[in-house]
């Protein structure tokens, strides 16, 4: 019986790993014609105008990085702050409902965030920041809201683990809750913080519907954060709807490959930083 279970786990694990590898192989294989036919330069240009044979996706790369990077910059400190509040700095009567709210937020479909933002956030930003309101800034703020619960729950889970191991020792040392967090939990939770950042970035760069509905989808390189931008994900959604025969279609595989590589690279880079810091 145990062997059966072990085998099932092994199959599930290997299967999940294979899906990832297969995705990478598939995307590379389909993007390959761009390389062999010398279209890499075309794809890595800043002009998207399929009618004129320009399939540049650099604006979309910048759009994705702006929105995901900006969202993490906002959501990570916010998420960390919430975790600190939840774990001893804030009163317990407030911590419990707050944790429940954060857990609930992880389950809210992203389309709802986008839908509400169209009515509430877009007009406000139009008045404050100018432009149409459909902008990188709008999308970035909403994506930050989207990924904050992911970041909170990841860090909070790590704190909870540490709490079980270290709580009595910190009490014996006479540390206040704030001291305990600052000098014991936070340094010990470094891996959890990195994991939270990776997961947050991954969710942000992979989000489609928020960007599609409120980022404006313009195909240029925006001069300001209040300009309309198109992400790689919404680009795939918009062009896939159009046709499956032209060169535009093949540039989508390059867009998909880049998305995959972004998440992979963010993962590797952050893990590298983590391991380096631990060894010093």
């Amino acid at each position: 019986m145990e062997r059966v279970v072990a085998t099932l786990y092994a199959v599930a694990g290997i299967g999940a790993g294979l899906v990832g590898v297969a995705l990478l192989v598939f995307l590379t294989a389909y993007s390959w014609p761009l390389v062999t036919q010398g279209h890499v330069g075309t794809v890595l240009s800043t002009t998207w105008n399929p009618n004129a044979g320009s399939f540049g996706i650099v604006p979309m790369i910048l759009g994705s990085l702006t929105i995901a990077g900006g969202a993490v910059l906002i959501a990570f400190p916010a998420g960390l702050g919430i975790c600190i509040f939840l774990n001893g700095v804030g009163p317990r009567w407030a911590a419990r409902p707050l944790r429940a709210v954060v857990e609930l937020m992880t389950g809210i479909p992203t389309v709802l965030y986008a839908f509400v933002a169209v009515f509430l956030l877009v007009p406000v930003l139009r008045n404050i920041a100018g432009g149409s309101g459909y902008s990188a800034l709008s999308a970035l703020l909403v994506v930050a809201v989207l990924i904050t619960p992911t970041i909170v729950l990841t860090i909070d889970g790590r704190f909870e683990q540490l709490h079980g191991q270290l709580y009595l020792a910190t009490v014996a040392l006479g540390l206040t809750p704030a001291q305990r967090l600052a000098w014991v939990y936070l340094p010990a939770a470094r891996n959890g913080l990195i994991a939270a950042m990776i997961l947050g970035f991954g969710r942000a760069v992979g989000d489609t519907v928020i960007a599609l509905m409120i980022a404006g989808n313009a195909t240029h390189v925006p001069s300001s954060i209040t300009g309309a931008v198109r992400t790689l994900t919404s680009h795939i959604a918009l062009v896939l709807a159009a046709d499956t025969q032209s060169g535009a279609y093949y540039s989508l595989f390059a867009a998909g490959l880049l998305l995959f590589l972004f998440v992979l690279l963010a993962n590797i880079a952050l893990r590298y930083i983590g391991s380096k810091e631990r060894s010093t």
Partner: peptide, 26 residues
């Protein structure tokens, strides 16, 4: 978006074939 027939007829008949700016919201 580029797949839209509304777009193609608008560009060819109302704009006389002029390309729409890449800065436009889509």
């Amino acid at each position: 978006d580029e797949g839209s027939a509304t777009q193609s007829v608008f560009v060819s008949e109302a704009l006389g074939g002029t390309s729409i700016s890449a800065a436009a919201n889509v």
